[in-house]
Design a protein around this nucleic acid. Structure first.
Length: 479
RNA sequence: GGCGACGUAGCCAAGUGGACAAGGCAGGGGUCUGCAAAACCCCGAUCGUCGGUUCAAUUCCGACCGUCGCCUCCA
């Protein structure tokens, strides 16, 4: 059984073979930090976080690098987004990028996205970018015009191998305004001459300027991961021109392959439309967290395969909420039963169940990180485990087997944080008060004072505390 | 115009050249319970359309229809 990854370069699934056995060097394009992260960022970084987590779960040592883009890149309008943002927020450019970098990391933390091992900033790698550009010029792949440097696409026979595009293809019908200083309209900027009013600029052999967009990823990935490295990830929307250009720059300068496996994840839509400020459907994560639990959002993202698109609608998110509850209900049942569970042998049926579920989730995840398949196996296990617990009182060892599996797979491998084990068990003062009320209610119930007992339950429910009566007593949890 | 992806039950969503096409949500019927909640059991699909390859296709190939992305420094 081997891990298989869909490689965008070959357009097929391939058995994953890392360059160094047992180690994975992986890079994912990071955000441009000029405003708050949105739901689209959540999908992308949850998708790749899950890849990293699963690889580690499978025993690989992963070195994960993700950049922060904090240098100004020019928009078509001639404006620079970071510059624009700093005017909007009345901040210095580097203050602005620092501010949004921190907010981005906060959001990712809440989504249980592990921080990359190295998070290099573009502004800290200008020197390396300049050297790389010089190498390209020396090798004849780039040329300077008026203080700007362009990559000559025609010089690279392989240009287009990732996106499957021929050079001529993109010429007609494109809305790109062709800069006449380029030799070929398809050429892209490695370095741009900065106009005097442009605040973000650095000295270079070609005068004051700032780097082109693609070069930073080429430079920072290879600096920390070597060349070639194993996996390069990013959103499909960046396949062309960004990733295509990264490859071209990297391989032209050195003659060495850039990255062995390219992974692209699908986009997120809001009610069928791409998120756009102009469409008024732009949802930042800060806004989303006010309405939806971050773990639920993560679960929602994992319910679809990473390569496919996701349509974010009220209905689909609601269905995901109740699905996750089903899983966490099992978790609650386990931790509430454990303290009073009988000693004894491990229940053979439960041992078998954990074994087949483990095999099943690994088989799914090994097949190009099929999280929906793995989650389906978790639901299967949940149903069977609930049935077993309704039928008999399994030993503590049996319950612990399931608990350990859930913690290991759900929390570590796919990053779904389960409720902490003391919630609902009365570890805090509020919990002790709830226990007190439950004691009173128990007495009311044994006296068949239903009206009063139900009133306590209803009022607790209104406070976000859900009761559940069973023959063995009443359990409760925060919802 | 070029390149690419996708179309599976009311909704979401896996998957396979052949013996019953996962799973979740919603819905219906039951069991349990003082009631509720949770849980368990039962109920649902000629896999976009039309051709082709094959003993056999939802799965492979082609055409068409539809939706979407990229070619605009959007994750």
């Amino acid at each position: 059984m081997a891990l298989v990854i869909y490689n965008s370069l070959s357009r097929q699934k391939e058995v994953f073979t890392p360059i160094q056995p047992g180690r994975v060097h992986m890079y994912v394009c990071g955000p441009t930090v000029y405003h708050d992260a949105h739901l689209g960022h959540a999908k992308t970084y949850i998708n790749f976080d899950t890849v990293v987590r699963y690889l580690r779960y499978r025993g690989y040592r992963v070195l994960y690098v993700q950049n922060i883009t904090d240098v100004g890149h020019m928009l078509d309008s001639g404006e620079d987004r970071i510059l624009k943002g700093s005017q909007r927020e009345q901040m210095q450019p580097m203050q602005l990028t620092e501010y949004y970098t921190r907010r981005y990391l906060e959001d990712m933390d809440r989504l249980n996205v592990l921080r990359p091992d190295i998070q290099p900033r573009a502004s800290g790698h200008i020197t390396e970018m300049i050297s790389w550009i010089q190498r390209l010029i020396e090798a004849g792949y780039a040329y300077e015009v008026n203080g700007s440097v362009y990559f000559s696409v025609a010089k690279d026979e392989d240009y287009g191998k990732l996106s499957g595009r021929q050079l001529e293809d993109s010429l007609s019908g494109t809305r790109v305004d062709v800069l006449d200083e380029k030799r070929d309209p398809a050429d892209f900027a490695l370095w741009k001459n900065a106009a005097p009013e442009h605040i973000l600029h650095w000295p270079s052999p070609w005068g004051e300027g700032f780097p082109g967009w693609h070069i930073e990823c080429t430079v920072m990935s290879t600096k920390y991961l070597g060349q070639p490295f194993d996996i390069h990830g990013g959103g499909v929307e960046n396949k062309f021109p960004h990733h295509e250009s990264e490859i071209s720059q990297a391989e032209s300068a050195s003659g060495v392959p850039f990255a062995n496996y390219w992974m692209h994840n699908g986009m997120l839509f809001i009610r069928g439309e791409e998120m756009h400020k102009s469409l008024g459907n732009f949802i930042t994560l800060k806004q989303a967290f006010e309405r939806w639990d971050p773990m639920m959002l993560r679960f929602f993202m994992l319910l679809s395969h990473y390569r496919g698109p996701i349509d974010f609608t009220e209905e689909s998110i609601g269905a995901a909420t109740r699905g996750l509850e089903r899983l966490t209900n099992l978790w609650y049942s386990l931790i509430q039963r454990l303290p009073s569970a009988p000693e004894g042998e491990v229940d053979p049926e439960i041992a078998k169940l954990v074994e087949t579920t483990t095999a099943s989730v690994i088989a799914s995840m090994d097949d190009d990180f099929n999280t929906p398949g793995a989650i389906a196996a978790l639901f299967d296990m949940t149903r069977e485990m609930n049935a077993i617990m309704a039928d008999r009182d399994p030993s503590a060892g049996s319950l612990e087997l399931v608990r350990t599996f859930m913690a290991g797979f759900m929390e570590d491998a796919i990053g779904l944080q389960l409720p902490s084990e003391d919630s609902g068990a009365g570890a805090d003062k509020a919990g002790a008060l709830v226990e007190l009320l439950l004691e009173t209610r128990r007495e009311l119930r044994s006296a068949k004072q239903w009206a009063l007992a139900d009133e306590i339950r209803d009022k607790l429910t209104a406070l976000g505390i859900e009761l559940r009566d069973s023959p063995d007593g009443t359990t409760w949890k925060y919802v």
